[in-house]
Simulated assay, not measured.
Amino acid sequence: MNIIYMLLAISVFVALVFFAAFIYSVKKGQYDDMYTPSVRMLFEDELVDEKKETSKSTNETTPRKKRLTK
């Protein structure tokens, strides 16, 4: 039974060490994304159908496209 308590204590200690390492790396900026903002302008925006508007010159309904902004 003593071995279970010892293994439980060791596992909690190891978990706390990994948690502390994670918090330290987040505060130091390890997970900051430096690549995506620089290439975001190269990706095409998705187009979304908006309301269909009638054309004044031909009386046809044409779908209007709108760019998504992030």
Rank of each mutant, 00 (worst) to 15 (best):
D33K: 06
V39H: 02
N2A: 14
S55E: 12
Q30C: 05
V17D: 03
M41D: 14
K52I: 10
M41A: 13
R40I: 13
Q30V: 09
Y35M: 10
P37S: 04
F18E: 07
Q30E: 09
R40P: 00
K66V: 14
K70P: 00
V26G: 02
Q30A: 14
A21H: 04
L68Y: 01
K51F: 03
G29N: 07
V14T: 10
N59A: 12
I23M: 12
N2K: 13
V17F: 10
E53W: 00
L68R: 05
A9L: 14
T58M: 04
P37G: 03
M6V: 08
S25A: 15
S25D: 15
S25H: 08
F19T: 11
T62G: 00
T62P: 00
T36D: 00
N2R: 13
K66D: 01
G29P: 01
L68P: 00
K51D: 11
P63R: 04
Y35V: 15
F22T: 06
K51N: 05
V26L: 15
V48P: 00
M6K: 11
V26S: 09
S57C: 01
L8S: 12
I10G: 02
K51W: 01
I10C: 08
K51A: 10
E60D: 08
T62V: 15
E50C: 07
V14F: 09
G29E: 07
T36H: 02
L8E: 10
M6S: 08
E50D: 15
A15G: 10
Y35W: 11
F43C: 04
E44S: 06
D49I: 02
Y24M: 11
R40M: 09
D32K: 13
L68V: 10
N2L: 14
T62C: 02
P63I: 09
N2Y: 09
K51C: 01
F43A: 07
Y5M: 04
L7C: 11
V12T: 08
